[in-house]
Simulated assay, not measured.
Amino acid sequence: MITPLEIQNKEFKRGIRGYKEDEVDEFLDQIMIDYEKLYKENIELKDKLEAAHHQMDQYKGIEETLKNTLIVAQNAAEDVRASAHKKSELIIQEAESKAGDIIAKAHREVEDIRNEFESTKKQMQIFKTRFRTLLQSQLDSLIESSDELVEENQDSQTA
């Protein structure tokens, strides 16, 4: 590619009926200025393009990192969810086991209370029977005593 400096330093041979040297020089100066602008603009655009490619590569790297991070996060979330599910199942099983133990204990206590009630009921029945027997015996004894007194009283009145 031709550089602006090469355009500036270019010299043409002179011919017999050549172009006017001032017009050619002026035209070459104008071309050199325009070409220099285009040349610099081309270099700037190449630099910008290179920077854009570099930035795009960085974004691709970031995108890949984000994809991997998202996958790791999804896996971690699944692991946490699965762990929480297992833990909840264990808590439920433990609660059901404790509930079963509490119910069994309550049934035993109810059974113990029933047995104690039955025992107390039997003791009360025995007590009633003994008390009735005692009262009957005392009543019989009183009746005998009273009959003896009445007989003694009658014997003492007849005598």
Rank of each mutant, 00 (worst) to 15 (best):
Glu23Ser: 08
Thr65Trp: 06
Asp112Tyr: 04
Ala104Arg: 06
Leu90Met: 13
Glu64Leu: 13
Ile143His: 14
Asp57Tyr: 03
Glu41Met: 05
Gln74Arg: 15
Ala73Thr: 10
Val110Asp: 15
Leu149Gln: 10
Gln157Ser: 04
Tyr59Lys: 05
Gln58Phe: 02
His107Ala: 09
Asp79Ile: 08
Asn9Phe: 09
Glu41Gln: 15
Lys20Asp: 15
Glu78Ile: 12
Ala82Gln: 11
Phe131Asp: 04
Tyr59Asn: 02
Leu66Pro: 01
Ser83Ile: 02
Asn42His: 10
Ala159Phe: 11
Glu89Pro: 00
Ile102Thr: 07
Leu49Cys: 02
Asp147Thr: 05
Tyr35Trp: 14
Gln93Ala: 15
Asp112Lys: 15
Lys98His: 07
Lys10Thr: 09
Tyr19Trp: 04
His85Gln: 13
Gln154Pro: 01
Arg114Gln: 14
Ser156His: 05
Arg14Glu: 15
Gln154Cys: 08
Glu26Ala: 10
Lys10Asp: 01
Arg132Asp: 15
Gln58Met: 09
Thr133Val: 02
Ala52Asp: 07
Gln125Arg: 08
Val150Tyr: 14
Ala73Asn: 10
His107Val: 13
Leu139Ile: 10
Gln8Thr: 05
Leu45Asp: 02
Ile126Lys: 07
Val80His: 05
Met124Gly: 01
Asn9Glu: 13
Arg81Asn: 11
Asn42Met: 07
Ser146Pro: 00
Ile62Leu: 10
Glu109Gly: 03
Asp25Val: 04
Ala73Glu: 11
Glu144Lys: 15
Ile16Ser: 06
Ala73Met: 12
Lys67Gly: 03
Asn115Tyr: 03
Leu5Arg: 11
Asn153Asp: 06
Gln136Val: 00
Val80Glu: 12
Asp47Phe: 04
Ile62Thr: 10
Glu41Leu: 14
Met124Tyr: 07
Phe131Gln: 10
Asn75Ala: 11
Ser156Asp: 10
Ile102Met: 13
Glu36Asp: 13
Leu70Gly: 15
Tyr35Ala: 01
Asp147Met: 04
Tyr39Leu: 03
Lys122Gln: 07
His53Gly: 08
Ile62Tyr: 09
Pro4Val: 04
Thr69Met: 06
Tyr39Ala: 02
Val150Ala: 14
Leu5Val: 06
Met1Pro: 08
Ser119Val: 00
Met32Pro: 00
Ser156Tyr: 00
Ser137Asp: 11
Glu63Val: 09
Thr3Ile: 04
Ala77Ile: 13
Arg108His: 06
Leu45Ala: 09
Ile71Phe: 01
Lys128Phe: 08
